[in-house]
Nucleic acid binder design. Structure first.
Length: 820
RNA sequence: GCCCGGGUGGCGGAAUUGGCAGACGCACUCGGCUUAAACCCGAGGGUCGCAAGACGUGCGGGUUCAAAUCCCGCCCCGGGCACCA
């Protein structure tokens, strides 16, 4: 029975959208829900405009996972919200002269409607916007908790400064010396700023990655390890002539102490300034410092830069042999890593060697090697027997390291030490559209937290404020807001006028989804116990370091506060790739922008989703030029048409149906399930395509549309398809005589008996080359299989009378005969 | 420089982790349906060869009865970190 009814994408979308609004199949908040909980989370979007192709991919993939677990009988929490504070809103607002708030909420409304139409399986009872006072209230609360615990503090230091956005940047936001947002060349500026003490958690951030091994992409774990940058070595004390206190240096190679021929302090460190004072080279030092601070981040990072520095006319004493080492100030030593001072061993460190050659400092080899660094200009590598090193002579590197630490530790002049590349997280921003920092600066009491019952400190209206970037926060001009009484002494005081980095907002939002309306706490610890950690997190690899590291840090702090009982927020992570066009990232200026709205209008929601999912492995980039949404429409039409060809009644027992079809279908459902659970969604789609092909054949040239197995198969197609193409699946489900929603129909039960193969194709090889194929019982014994293989005509011919030297039998799939 | 990935038909990609390389789809060719075209349905193809067959997963070697898969060396592409002592 073929029908004249056509597959009409537009009509199907319009038919089911209101029905879903009505039945809300993805609500997860019923406290009496008997289903086991599962938390599937997509990274929330930034409301910079309407959804684009990248969102379409990410949410299509997240939806496959969420909908799969719903079909498997879980109460899936799949929430969405908006990461709604931040610079782009503010910049757009400045350009158009509108309130950033208005702009932001308009975009949110638009994205929300687009997500609804895109059929995202979100629980719409759980949305949040980070720019709502109800949300950022708890940013402030968490900040104050950290302040209490000494994890939030203010310090004066040289910070990354974006001259374009006129704001400071976290280390993580400086990419190749440029501002991550606007690409301006980053400079340095000395400012007093708020920091979060993430370095206190460096060790745990590293160690707890053991929990994530195999469940997060290796790439992300590696990136985080690199970023944290743990190194082990020793702290060694050097006396400085004419200074009471010794100076500590950090080195990973204490074994090379006998090779130290000079000593360097970071030119911008306090120590350098102190040592320069009274040295007679004050002017030279000051000139050098001025020159260095003019160098941009980009130039500073250039590896080719020649070494520069100033001899401070002072000497450090090598603790192992009492030698006098000239002390230099240079910019190749970083003030904020280790102690800002190093011992320099030119023979075995390339940078020290470069410096030594520039300043004509002796090079002394202490680890034996064939090449002489002072001749080749190449410092020699790690291991080898030590020479010129007194008691260390003859030892290899690890032994020499241990020995020298032991020697110096006796009188406290050295100890084993660990260092991290990770720096504390600078969170102050001199911009308007963010969470106000809830601190009041009082001339007598200092930094006073805003009392909890006065939270949230709401952003003042931008009316009358100059939002143009100018290096200080626009909030500083909101005088009525700014000037308050000190909560402690009631004297005149001022609010902190900076706002928080928006990465604070996204560091804990996954907890707020538990109950976004809650007013007495950021979240309910009991609910957190039930739902968290997040079972599956889905998002772009662009957040591999920043967001994920910060969220992990916050989670550990909350753990230490006793608010959550886990230490890692995201049990499993899937990074989807990007959607590109003609090999490169889409952009207006490049002229290769593909508009999602155009694609949706042309092919429909289901076809776009299907195209995203089928294009390849989820973590790979999709080149839109390589894929075919119209082919997706064709397939969906083919699948949909099956639902009109089923003539048996709903509920008919499939057991009497065509056994061959049932075997194929059950095997494919089984395979599709494995594919989905291992994130091979493209393969799962291929399996559904095979199902459709098999059913088509069964209807046209097999048992026909009335066979119960055909109904069973088409119903399975509808359910499996519902993960990817919800509109088509729902319409098929209705045409099959069922009530909505197919999303809740349940994953088809796979009969293990039907999945078992009846016969197996056994490959018979001679010398590793396939010469025959046998259809055999899967239970066949090795001896029987060997006999059957050797008896086969083609095998007899291939052997040509030669006796087999060896026969390898892997029943039931393979026999390999090695001729004599 | 250091650290991760990856290289399979004309294209996107499969391959139960050592056991039939190329599933599924795109593009293409041929056939059916049609007055015709589109749609739809069916068939085809890794390369070379008329064929038997030979060769074939970046390149070169190795292990194994058997290698896209494991090992060694190289080449290329993508990503991360990078004056971090």
């Amino acid at each position: 029975m073929s029908d004249a009814v056509e597959y009409d994408v537009e009509a199907i979308q319009n038919r089911w959208l209101p029905v879903w609004d009505e039945i809300a199949p993805f609500r997860s908040g019923d406290p009496d829900d008997p289903r086991p909980p599962k938390y599937v989370l997509d990274m929330f979007p930034y409301p910079s405009g309407d959804l684009h192709m990248g969102h379409a991919e990410a949410y299509a993939l997240g939806d496959v996972i969420a909908r799969y677990w719903v079909q498997q009988g879980f109460n899936v929490m799949h929430p969405i919200g908006w990461d709604a504070f931040g610079l782009p809103a503010e910049n757009a607002a400045i350009r158009r002269g509108v309130n950033p708030k208005t702009w932001t909420y308009e975009n949110i409304a638009q994205q929300r409607e687009s997500m609804r139409r895109y059929a995202c399986s979100f629980d719409w009872d759980r949305t949040l916007n980070t720019c709502d006072p109800e949300y950022y209230h708890w940013n402030q609360w968490l900040f104050l908790k950290m302040f209490e615990r000494g994890l939030a503090y203010r310090k004066d230091s040289s910070v990354n400064w974006c001259p374009n956005d006129q704001t400071v940047l976290a280390n993580e936001q400086v990419v190749n010396g440029r501002c991550e947002r606007c690409d301006a060349v980053v400079t340095k500026k000395k400012l007093t700023q708020w920091y979060l003490r993430i370095t206190d958690y460096a060790e745990r951030l590293l160690d707890d990655m053991a929990q994530l091994e195999g469940k997060w992409p290796d790439k992300v774990l590696t990136m985080q390890r690199n970023w944290i940058g743990r190194s082990t070595g020793a702290e060694v004390q050097f006396a400085i002539e004419g200074r009471d206190e010794p100076v500590t240096v950090y080195t990973t190679r204490p074994d090379t102490l006998y090779g130290a021929t000079f000593f360097v302090v970071a030119v911008d460190s306090d120590l350098a300034a102190e040592l320069a004072a009274g040295s007679g080279v004050e002017q030279e030092f000051a000139d050098y410092l001025a020159e260095v601070s003019k160098i941009s981040e980009i130039d500073r990072l250039s590896a080719e830069r020649p070494k520069t520095g100033v001899f401070l006319q002072r000497y450090a004493i090598n603790p192992v042999n009492g030698e006098r080492l000239p002390v230099y100030a240079s910019d190749y030593v970083l003030a904020d890593y280790g102690t800002g001072a190093i011992m320099a061993v030119p023979a075995h460190d390339q940078r020290d060697l470069d410096f030594a050659r520039t300043f004509d400092i002796p090079v002394r080899v202490v680890v034996e090697s064939d090449e002489d660094p002072s001749v080749t200009g190449v410092a020699t590598g790690d291991d080898g027997p030590h020479v010129n090193s007194g008691p260390l002579d003859g030892l290899n590197t690890p032994d020499a390291v241990a020995r020298v630490i032991e020697m110096l530790a006796e009188d406290g002049r050295a100890k084993a030490a660990v260092n991290y590349r990770l720096r504390d997280w600078l969170i102050s921003r001199q911009r308007y559209w963010g969470t106000p920092i809830p601190i009041i600066h009082c001339p007598t009491c200092g930094e006073v937290p805003v009392p909890e019952d006065e939270l949230p400190v709401q952003l003042p209206s931008p009316e009358g404020l100059d939002l143009q970037p100018k290096g200080t926060s626009p909030l500083g001009a909101a005088e009525e807001w700014l000037n308050v009484r000190c909560p402690r002494c009631d004297g005149p005081a001022q609010r902190d006028s900076d706002t928080m980095d928006t990465f604070v907002d996204s560091s804990w939002y996954f907890l707020r989804f538990l109950d976004p309306q809650r007013t007495d706490a950021p979240f309910d610890p009991e609910a957190a116990k039930r739902w968290l950690p997040v079972d599956q997190y889905v998002g772009g690899v662009t957040h591999a370091i920043l967001h994920l590291l910060y969220a992990r840090f916050f989670t550990k702090v909350l753990h230490d506060m006793g608010m959550v009982d886990f230490t890692e927020p995201f049990s499993s992570l899937l990074n989807q790739g990007m959607v590109v066009m003609d090999g490169s990232a889409m952009s207006k200026s490049r002229g290769n922008l593909v508009r999602l709205s155009d694609e949706l209008a042309e092919h429909g929601v289901d076809a776009v989703r299907l195209t995203m999912v089928f294009a390849g492995p989820p973590e790979d980039d999709i080149d839109w030029a390589d894929v075919s949404p119209s082919a997706s429409v064709r397939f969906l039409t083919r699948a949909w048409r099956l639902s009109g060809d089923v003539t048996s009644e709903p509920g008919v027992d499939p057991v009497g149906g065509d056994i061959a079809l049932r075997r194929v279908i059950h095997r494919l459902i089984h395979d599709a399930q494995l594919a989905v659970e291992s994130f091979r969604f493209n393969v799962a789609v291929a399996k559904v395509m095979e199902m459709v092909n098999a059913v088509r054949k069964a209807i046209d040239s097999g048992p026909g549309g009335d066979d119960p197995a055909v109904r069973e198969a088409v119903e399975a197609v509808a359910v499996l398809l519902s993960l990817v193409a919800p509109y088509t699946a729902e319409d098929m489900w209705a045409r099959l005589g069922h009530e909505p929603s197919v999303a809740l129909a349940g994953w088809p039960a796979v009969d293990p008996e039907l999945v078992k193969a009846q016969t197996v194709t056994c490959v018979v090889q001679v010398a590793g080359k396939v010469k025959a194929r046998l259809e055999v019982d899967p239970q066949i014994g090795e001896d029987d299989l060997q006999a059957a293989a050797l008896a086969d005509q083609a095998i007899v011919a291939a052997l040509g009378g030669v006796e087999p030297r060896r026969v390898i039998v892997r029943a039931p799939k393979l026999v390999n005969i090695v001729p004599g």
